[in-house]
Design a binder for these strands. Structure first.
Lengths: 125, 125, 125, 125
DNA sequence: GTGGTCTAGACCACC
DNA sequence: GTGGTCTAGACCACG
């Protein structure tokens, strides 16, 4: 479920943080459910447990999870976390839009991309 | 014209690279016009000349400028540079849109932001 | 394995870049194997680590290697790098051949030199 | 007859030196004939006379030309100059051939390029 | 331990 | 004056 890319230049621990945030927002890990243990995730991804630990600490310091000693790490209620995340993304969005306009990308193309990302996915499974 | 932010975590030399790209795309530095000299820009921004040098070398390796020893650094014709820049930005845009959707930002908000960035600025000065 | 020549006028960092490309093409450093660390190579060659760093960053910007912070610098898969390198060398070859003809070097001598460079080295060790 | 390229990174004065050597070897300027004057060539190429001066000084220090005060700069008998030039080019040729082999360019391709450069040009003008 | 960034100061070639 | 290279030494983030 988590794909790491050594070549991307993005620190491993940060890739894990971002992936976890996505998975939580997607509902894979609902409120009060446990994240995979440090050791199991380290084995699964084939990396050093210290790196997982660091990612989990960042998630906790962001207020996204809480740790229960001896039990594990659990997902917080996401309401206020989401608003913080949203404001970050709004900022990023404005920066990219600004750069896109300067580089000559048309408004139409931007609108199309947005509509495509938000398209209704009708799934008959 | 260039604002540096020490706290942003973004390396200074990279901030300069991005600012220069913007200024070139804006037409502040047209084709074959010289950029500020390494030393003068270093004084102006209050940083070490080596840092400017590094930024300028990155611009050259991106094909945006060319250096003439003893004369200065000059802006290349930008046509093919722009297309490369655009494809980078398209990629970034898709990532941000994806994250925005996951975080629950509405399509309407995204569309509004895009239209605002691309608004006609009618200036009556 | 790397010989530097201070007198050649060629910058040290560029000598390192070219030597590394040769060693990689020779298979001394295969795909995904690590290059010597910045500090160790600096000690070995008796030069400043910053110079090694500059050489390694050029290799990365050429797409020949990728860096993983905290781990090392690794060799990329070389397929498309080789084609780029080949086209550069074809260009250089044409220039040298042209000059050689103008300077009165005979075709026979050029052909002999080429055949000598490409001779089969049968090694009975 | 002389084409300068500001973007090439090669110093202007060196471009002039190399072009002049070519023109002399081609017979455009035979033994004891005068080169264009510093001032006229500077005007023709649209560059600073100091740069021409430097190029001409290098030609003289290479033994290719000799200066007669108040009259101009004249081409030397080229015999020993040519042998020096040839040994330089032999060296360059060997380097390029070596790199070409390492990069996987075939012997056949090299031979073809050489034969093409040395082809008989039968001119019916 | 690793790579990445930055500073301070020096020297060179070029125009 | 210009850009380009190199050294020495420092600090940081990462694994």
């Amino acid at each position: 479920m988590i794909n790491l890319d050594n070549r991307s230049g993005k620190p491993i621990y940060k890739q894990i943080v971002d992936s976890m945030i996505d998975l939580i927002f997607l509902g894979v890990y609902p409120t009060d459910s446990p994240l995979p243990s440090v050791r199991s995730l380290a084995v699964e991804l084939g990396i050093n447990p210290n790196t997982i630990q660091k990612a989990y600490q960042e998630l906790e310091s962001m207020g996204i999870t809480y740790a229960v000693a001896g039990k594990g790490i659990f997902v917080n209620s996401t309401t206020d976390v989401i608003t913080k995340r949203q404001s970050e993304l709004r900022q990023q969005l404005l920066v990219v839009l600004h750069e896109a306009r300067l580089a000559g990308i048309s408004l139409n193309e931007v609108l199309s991309a947005a509509k495509y990302e938000y398209r209704e996915v009708t799934n008959n499974d």
